[in-house]
Amino acid sequence: MKLLVNGTAHDVDAAPDTPLLYVLRNNVGLTGPKFGCGLGQCGACTVIVDGVAVRSCTTPVSSAARGPITTIEGLGTPDKPHPVQQAFIEEQAAQCAYCINGMIMTTAALIARNKQPTREQIRSTLNANLCRCGTHMRIVRAVEKAAALSLAQQTGGNEG
């Protein structure tokens, strides 16, 4: 089965109904997406397929083969973080960070479609993402900053 992950084509050997999460973590070697529940209840496994944030633990790999897949590793690197990652680092918005893959990927998809989300929209978008360390206050601040950083980058880009 062919997958396009973070811009690279992969030919993976997996049964079509295998959850995308295990294919990414074990076949492709991308461990940024995390296993949290396998039930679609926590968001730790979130990746972006075709522009939409999906729960890779309940998404069969066959249905993810339809579009490009982005994982947290594909957003940016420690040296060149994506604006969302940058904002999360600046706000120090993590404790253990096990949930953070889901928070960052959900946020990236959110601000791609809504450049200036309100606090209410941020909370409702993240409402199905669980964090046990209680980093919520910082995460909300980081999402607000991420939106501002992205906007600044885009405006900067247009002007330049």
Binding site: L30, T31, K34, I72, I89, Q92
Partner: peptide
């Protein structure tokens, strides 16, 4: 001081026992 391991955690590079 900013937390040392956060850039790796925020970019999916941090190695947890699960990884």
């Amino acid at each position: 001081m900013p937390r040392v391991e956060l850039p790796a955690k925020m970019t999916g590079r941090h190695v947890y026992v699960h990884d």
